[in-house]
Structure formats: structure tokens, C-alpha cells
């Protein structure tokens, strides 16, 4: 109980959350590069954009976060998916 009280300060939670988000960012980037199924790779890039948008909000850049959420998560993914529908789904 005492341990919980001094470990869970807001500052520590903030830093731990940032660390986890950055780790997930790198993991999602690696996932989208090594994945053979291009559909999953595109979902990976979309995840990178989503995490990036949350990180911009944590860095006090709401304008950039809004842009990244609208362009990176929605439109770039849509354009990639359209291109994928017109080409092949799997990487040989």
C-alpha cells in the first residue's frame, strides 16, 4: 500500500505513459516494415500515425495533433488502401 502511494505520482504516470507510447511507436513501425501482408502493414502505418497524434498532444501541439489525426490516420490510410485494391495484396 505504501509502495503504491509513493510510486503512482502523476509525474511518474506521465513519464511511464510517454515511454510506453514511444515503445509502441517503434514496435508498430517495425511491424509495418516486416509484415508480408500489405494490408496489415498499412494498418501498422495507421497505428504509427495514431500514436504520433497522441504524442503531439502530450507535447502541447494541438494543431499538429489535429492535422496528423485527420491526414495521417484517415486520408493516408484511405489512399494506401485504394492503391492496394488496384494492385496485389501480398508481398512476394
Amino acid at each position: 500500500m505504501i509502495l503504491l502511494q509513493w510510486t503512482l505520482t502523476p509525474e511518474l504516470l506521465y513519464q511511464a505513459g510517454t515511454g510506453i507510447l514511444l515503445f509502441l511507436l517503434v514496435v508498430a513501425a517495425i511491424f509495418s516494415v516486416v509484415q508480408k501482408d500489405l494490408l496489415m502493414a498499412i494498418v501498422g502505418t495507421s497505428l504509427v500515425s495514431l500514436i504520433l497524434s497522441v504524442l503531439f498532444l502530450l507535447l502541447h501541439a494541438p494543431d499538429v495533433a489535429l492535422t496528423e489525426a485527420a491526414i495521417g490516420v484517415a486520408l493516408t490510410t484511405a489512399i494506401f488502401l485504394i492503391a492496394l485494391r488496384k494492385t496485389g495484396r501480398y508481398e512476394e
Binding site: 509495418s32 516494415v33 500489405l38 499538429v64 508481398e91
Partner: peptide
């Protein structure tokens, strides 16, 4: 794969922005 190359370009973009 060409689409993988374009994904790589967009990841480089994302890293620079952050």
C-alpha cells in the same frame, strides 16, 4: 515491393515530424 517503399517514405516523414 513498391508499396513497402512508399510505406518507408511515410515512416521517415513521421519520424522527422516527431
Amino acid at each position: 515491393n513498391l508499396i513497402k517503399i512508399v510505406i518507408g517514405l511515410s515512416l521517415m516523414d513521421a519520424g522527422t515530424h516527431l
